[in-house]
Each structure stands twice: as structure tokens, then as C-alpha cells.
């Protein structure tokens, strides 16, 4: 019963189960709890969650009497006390009277544009923004990086501690770290930001790299992410990299040292198009900016 490793694994399971509303399929009051669950009766319900999966969990002691078909909302609550006095928390569900509207509908999706550094993601995202004007919005990136001149993307700068706290409480659904010789920085996306854009009825656009894309796909589901990969022009990996190097130098935003580092990452990103092909709906070669923007625009509008 009091097995610490099993509790540790349970936490991981819970982290994977997003906090979802549900509907009661059946429920019962346990009058004779098993060892470790105290002596007071409690209600356990079989719940169908928003995503269609089912779970067994206790209900909180609320004012509303549970009923089959009632809507429940999740909370983290103390579920039992271990023999050594430590509390164990787990998901408990509260019965709510009113029917809860789901935050997003199935048609909602995120447009993700990804590709190696210097391929022109930012330019394309900015153009898309003006093309979509009133119905798209770029999702801000939360970062521990210091603000710097020439930043064009919507960044939200936070401290390392704040970032870690947001990861811990689940606010940040996708994150990546980029340790380098020059600086230690982390990037991430907040669920709230994406939800807010959806609630406005707009299309969230993320300009991103592989780790963040993977995180988003895991958190939102593969179908909720329309993913476009951008390739630099060139017939071989070598020629693609050299065209990237050229663009990075022309941009003049980074030092030579940083450029070298970015190129290394770019090389890995190029490889990812092959290794993680399942993460991409479309691959577009950015050899001519206007054509490329048109292509992404069309994909996003028709949601192919």
C-alpha cells in the first residue's frame, strides 16, 4: 500500500492525464474502505472524460448529490494518509450542477511553422499574420532569455524560477531548453495563451522548433496541430546548410559563435524532417518567399 515508487509512477500517470471534465457513468459509496483509506465512507465514480477515456476516481464531498450523467470537474485533493504520516494526493472530481461547455471544439487547431534557424520562419509568420489579419494570432513564447534588440517575435520574458514553477503546475504544456556556451535559456508555450486565442475564435500560430512541436503534439493531440515544415533551398543537405549560413550572416542578429551553434541545431532540424516525418503535414521549400507564404496560407485556410 505505502509504496513510494508506485506513488512516483502514479504522479507521472496523472501528469499525462490532462485535467479534464467528465460525466458520471456510475457511482457508489464505499462504506468499508480498504487498508490505508481511513474509516469514513467516500464516493467513487466511474467517469467518462472529455477525450473519451474512462477513469475511476473519488468524488469530493460537495453539496450536490451525484447522479449518473452529472458533470464533474477535476481537483487535486488529499486521498489518504500513509502509515508514516505523509499525505497522498490524487485526482478527485467535484459534481457541478450546470453543464460545462468544453473550452475548445474539435475544429480548433494550431498552425505550427517549423524549420531550421534562418529558413525564414519569422518572415513567413509575420506575412501570414498580415494575410490573416483579424483571424490569426501568434502564440507568445515564454522564455528565460534576456530581452534583446532586434527581437521580432512576441516573447514573454520570465525568470528561471517562474518558468520552472509554470512547468511544475502544468501551465506550460510544451517546453525546451537550449543550453549553450553563451547562455542557458528555456522556451515554452502556455496552454492559457492558446486557449485565449481559440476563445477569441482565432487561429493560433506558433513559430517553433522540433522539441516544442513534439510537446505541443503530445499536449494537444496530433490532429489539433497543422504542421508545416520549412526547408531551405538546395538539392543536398550541404547546400541547404550553406544557404542557411548565408541568411544568418545577412540577418546580422547573432555573433559568429552563435551562428555556428545555430547551424549545428539546423543540421539536426534538417535530419528531423526525415526522422520525425509523422510530425509534419506539409514540407515546403522556401526558395521564393511569396510562393512559400501563399502555400502556407492556402494550407491553413483549407486545412488540408
Amino acid at each position: 500500500m505505502d509504496r513510494i515508487p508506485s506513488l512516483h509512477r502514479r504522479i507521472k500517470t496523472l501528469q499525462k492525464t490532462a485535467m479534464q471534465f467528465g460525466t458520471i457513468l456510475s457511482f457508489t459509496t464505499v462504506r468499508h474502505p480498504p487498508a490505508g483509506f481511513g474509516t469514513e465512507p467516500y464516493v467513487v465514480a466511474l467517469i467518462r472524460l472529455q477525450n473519451g477515456t474512462k477513469t475511476l476516481a473519488q468524488l469530493t464531498r460537495g453539496s450536490i448529490t451525484p447522479a449518473i450523467g452529472a458533470t464533474v470537474v477535476p481537483h487535486m485533493r488529499k486521498i489518504r494518509t500513509m502509515r508514516n504520516g505523509l499525505f497522498v494526493n490524487d485526482l478527485k472530481y467535484e459534481v457541478v450542477a450546470k453543464k460545462i461547455e468544453p473550452i475548445f471544439t474539435v475544429t480548433a487547431y494550431v498552425l505550427a511553422v517549423s524549420g531550421p534557424s534562418g529558413v525564414g520562419k519569422t518572415t513567413i509568420a509575420r506575412s501570414l499574420m498580415s494575410l490573416f489579419s483579424s483571424y490569426a494570432e501568434q502564440v507568445p513564447i515564454v522564455t528565460t532569455r534576456k530581452a534583446k534588440k532586434g527581437d521580432s517575435e512576441p516573447y514573454c520574458h520570465v525568470s528561471e524560477e517562474k518558468f520552472e514553477a509554470m512547468v511544475q503546475n502544468g501551465e506550460i504544456i510544451s517546453q525546451t531548453g537550449m543550453p549553450s556556451a553563451s547562455e542557458q535559456r528555456r522556451y515554452g508555450y502556455r496552454r492559457n495563451d492558446i486557449d485565449a486565442i481559440w476563445r477569441k475564435g482565432k487561429l493560433p500560430i506558433v513559430v517553433t522548433e522540433l522539441n516544442l512541436l513534439t510537446g505541443l503534439v503530445n499536449a494537444l493531440g496530433r490532429r489539433a496541430v497543422l504542421s508545416c515544415g520549412l526547408l531551405p533551398p538546395g538539392h543536398s543537405r550541404r547546400s541547404m546548410l550553406s544557404s542557411l549560413l548565408h541568411r544568418l550572416r545577412v540577418r546580422g542578429r547573432d555573433t559568429e559563435e552563435q551562428i555556428e551553434e545555430r547551424l549545428k541545431i539546423a543540421e539536426a532540424d534538417l535530419r528531423a524532417f526525415d526522422d520525425h516525418a509523422h510530425l509534419f503535414d506539409h514540407l515546403i521549400v522556401n526558395d521564393h518567399l511569396e510562393t512559400c507564404i501563399e502555400a502556407v496560407h492556402e494550407i491553413a485556410v483549407t486545412r488540408r
Binding site: T29, V30, H32
Partner: peptide, 13 residues
Amino acid sequence: AEKDGPSGLTFPS
């Protein structure tokens, strides 16, 4: 043990 146990369910329940 992982799906039913943590909620404090018993066999009668």
C-alpha cells in the same frame, strides 16, 4: 492495481 486501486475502490464497490 494502477487503474482501480488508487481511487480506494473495493471489490464490493
